[in-house]
Amino acid sequence: MSNIKTLVQQLVEKHGKTRNSLMPVLQGIVKEERYLSEEAMLTVAEELDLSAADVYGSASFYTFLDTTPRGKNIVRICKTISCHMQGKDELIHAVENTLNIKVGETTHDKKFTLLTANCLGWCHKGPVMLVNDDVYPAITVQKAVEIIETLAKHTK
């Protein structure tokens, strides 16, 4: 049995075989795989007894449920007004340069994907960066680069 199938079955087991479990199941896959592959969505459809279109319809609605391959670490930088006023552009440029990619792209070694996000809820402490689930408010360019470099070393 493929890894994905085992993972989906475990998640369905945990959350229950109902339509209401679709979000937690998809979120669980993204937590492990960083994105939803076609195989993953087809497996979910089968296990939850939904149409594949239904699963894709829900998945494609949500920003955090990516349906294109992503790096092992997802970096999101807030681009909403308060962070804009507190230097998100400089932060984005610095991270782009460090990773040698543009916003929306994934590094060749598949370690990082860089994205922007709408308001992350830290307007009093901008700019803010979210790396996977970890949040870094009031971050300086230097600190952001350090975090990314450290993470690059520790990501296999």
Binding site: T80, I81, S82, N118, C119, G121, W122, C123, H124
Partner: peptide, 11 residues
């Protein structure tokens, strides 16, 4: 769900 730009009190 606190998503309104400029709101961070619920967190």
């Amino acid at each position: 769900d606190e998503g309104e730009p400029g709101t961070f009190k619920d967190r």
